[in-house]
């Protein structure tokens, strides 16, 4: 996933159009976007929206309130039956948090007749302690498929001043990324919060991509195009993917079992990656005759 778009959980208009903005995932938010006295309303609205609207374009992530709040268990009760692709727990600071969540998911999945482990977890790490425990969090459970940095709360926790160039979060970005990659999972970068600064967004997104992040979250639909572009395959990658798929076709036609390209064997992960690259390319409308 290149982009994850936050959608406030108690906003019917935005829920109706959550999947039209081109985001690879939408994060339906029950946490910060919903005031404490409307948590009950948002939970029911999100449940109904997911059931009725049957989002097709993109993965479904639901962000829930932190463990230890009165909302945590109710959120899980409401969300698990929807069988989202991911649950995003918030203020995750330790492996124990994830283990506790995963145990609850085991029970709830069983209750709902879902396959065990169906729902994955993307922990939102947004405290100094969480950053220090990033690797343990990444390895805490097999459900954890990615780490996600939340820089707003984190920089407040540091007593740092949040800035556009983001020097104050450089350590956290590096730490999250290293922990995620060491655990062989994905890493997602914090949203860029100035909705109107397109140039700043492009810079911030390409920095994250160069650092090694898999993708980036967005708080505005208007950021999705730029984020997708920053995290999309380059021309060279596209060219290589096309050659891979052509070689495979050629191999099939000739009835060859094994196919090689540029002196290297093409195995399944290479083919899968090439297919993903081409899918991304098509989704973005890249690769035309004149691009």
């Amino acid at each position: 996933m290149r982009s994850m778009l936050f959608i406030p959980g108690n906003n019917p208009g935005m829920l109706l159009n959550a999947d039209v903005h081109g985001a690879d995932a939408m994060i339906l938010d029950l946490e910060d976007a919903v005031s404490p006295d409307q948590k009950d309303a948002a939970r029911i609205l999100v449940r109904n929206a997911v059931r009725a609207l049957d989002y097709q374009n993109g993965k479904l992530v639901i962000r829930i309130n932190p463990i230890g709040t009165p909302f945590f268990d109710d959120d899980l009760q409401a969300v698990v039956p929807l069988s989202p692709d991911y649950i995003m727990p918030t203020k995750v600071d330790s492996a124990e948090y994830i283990k506790a969540l995963s145990e609850k998911l085991d029970l709830l999945e069983a209750e709902c007749g879902l396959e065990n482990g169906k729902i994955s977890i993307i922990p939102l790490i947004e405290t100094a302690e969480g950053i220090e425990n990033a690797f343990a969090i990444a390895k805490a459970d097999k459900r954890v498929k990615a780490l996600f940095l939340g820089a707003e709360d984190y920089s407040a926790d540091l007593h740092a001043v949040r800035s556009k160039q983001g020097d104050e979060i450089l350590y956290a970005r590096g730490r999250i990324l290293n922990a995620a990659r060491a655990a062989a999972i994905d890493a997602y970068d914090t949203p860029f919060t100035d909705v109107n600064d397109e140039e700043g967004l492009e810079k911030d997104a390409s920095l994250a991509r160069e650092m090694g992040f898999t993708g980036k979250a967005a708080i505005s639909p208007r950021h999705i195009t730029a984020i997708n572009a920053a995290f999309s395959p380059s021309k060279a990658e596209i060219q290589y993917a096309k050659e891979v798929l052509e070689a495979i076709e050629e191999g099939k036609r000739l009835g060859k079992g094994a196919v090689s390209l540029r002196g290297k064997m093409i195995d399944k992960p290479v083919v899968d990656r090439a297919k993903r690259v081409i899918e991304d390319m098509l989704a973005l409308g890249l690769g035309g005759d004149d691009e």
Binding site: P12, L15, L16, A41, I44, L45, R47, N48, A49, R51, A52, L53
Partner: peptide, 9 residues
């Protein structure tokens, strides 16, 4: 409001 919203409210 569409039906799923009405019912939620």
């Amino acid at each position: 409001a569409v039906e799923c919203t009405l019912k939620a409210r």
